[in-house]
Simulated assay, not measured.
Amino acid sequence: MTQPEHALGLFGGTFDPIHYGHLRLAETAREALGLERVRFIPAGRPPHRGTPGASGTDRLAMARLATADNPAFEVDPAEVDAAQASFTILTLERLRLALGPHRPLVLLLGVDAFLGLPGWKRWTELFDFAHIAVANRPGYSLDAAQMPTELAALTEQRQAAPNALETRPHGALVQFAMTPLAISATDIRTRHSAGHSLRYLLPPPVLDYISRHQLYL
């Protein structure tokens, strides 16, 4: 009898720069959802926001430095290496083709990103390739009253418990509690350009990289 394949978390973002808030979300998701690994996927050309402050090469390097000490974390360079815009649906298609039809894939999203799904390219097809896991503040859950009608209906249809993730390769919507850290990449860039310390906001190797390469000045 074939053993079930373990779930792989997928965490995309600009990571401009990657910081402790990103790392804590990934680690919390790994534990709460029983993920075997979490794959960080830095965006090359993010279509829904302005040009990042650091190049794709620099953001990829910082992601690798930040995750190097956690054996459950890995970094995917494909979006940075690609010439096209970084649409999530295209990344999921690529990963499903590479990893096969049976591996459970779990797309990790914050609440704000999930509520904005109707603005994403081919967003209703995301569940054809992966599960979606939404990070909530403790004690809170998704509120259908906050959602566009189509997203609320899809949420009601797809809701499942976290233990459902390994029973099928895609299609479920789960939630997990995430204690938010009041850290943002925007604030980090602003602080750095103003000459303020970034210590304790991001891992020391990332801080050293920013200093060496004179980023965000």
Rank of each mutant, 00 (worst) to 15 (best):
I41N: 03
L108S: 02
V174H: 03
L207C: 06
L165K: 05
N163S: 11
S184H: 10
A63R: 01
T88S: 06
A66Q: 04
P71N: 13
Y209D: 09
R59T: 09
Q146W: 03
E79I: 10
V80A: 10
F15Y: 08
E79H: 08
I183D: 01
L181Y: 07
A68N: 08
M178R: 01
S86W: 01
L97C: 05
D69N: 14
A83H: 12
A194P: 02
E79W: 01
H19E: 11
I188R: 03
A152Q: 00
L198C: 10
L65R: 04
G110D: 08
H131F: 08
G9H: 05
L108E: 01
H102A: 15
T88D: 02
A177K: 06
R94Q: 00
A194E: 15
T51S: 14
F73D: 04
P42V: 07
M62H: 08
F11W: 08
L23S: 03
P4V: 13
M1K: 12
K121M: 08
L126G: 03
R191Q: 15
L108F: 04
T167M: 02
L10R: 05
T67Q: 10
T186E: 12
Q214M: 12
E79L: 05
R24E: 13
L181W: 05
L151H: 01
G44T: 12
Q3D: 14
R158S: 02
A172M: 08
A29G: 05
F40W: 12
R191I: 05
G116H: 14
L8R: 01
A66Y: 04
A82Y: 11
A172K: 03
L97Y: 00
R189V: 11
Q214D: 15
G50S: 15
A144I: 02
F11N: 06
A98Y: 00
A68V: 11
F176G: 03
A72G: 13
A26M: 09
H213S: 11
Y200L: 15
E125R: 13
F127W: 15
R122E: 14
E156V: 10
E5P: 03
P4N: 14
M178G: 00
S193P: 05
A182K: 13
H192M: 09
E156P: 00
L33M: 12
E156K: 06
V38D: 04
E93S: 04
L154H: 01
A78G: 09
A29E: 07
F15N: 07
V174K: 02
G56N: 05
L142T: 07
G13Q: 05
D143Q: 12
E27D: 15
A185K: 06
L198N: 10
E36C: 08
A54G: 13
F176R: 06
P204W: 10
R24I: 09
L115T: 07
T14N: 07
R64L: 12
A182V: 12
L198A: 13
F114Q: 06
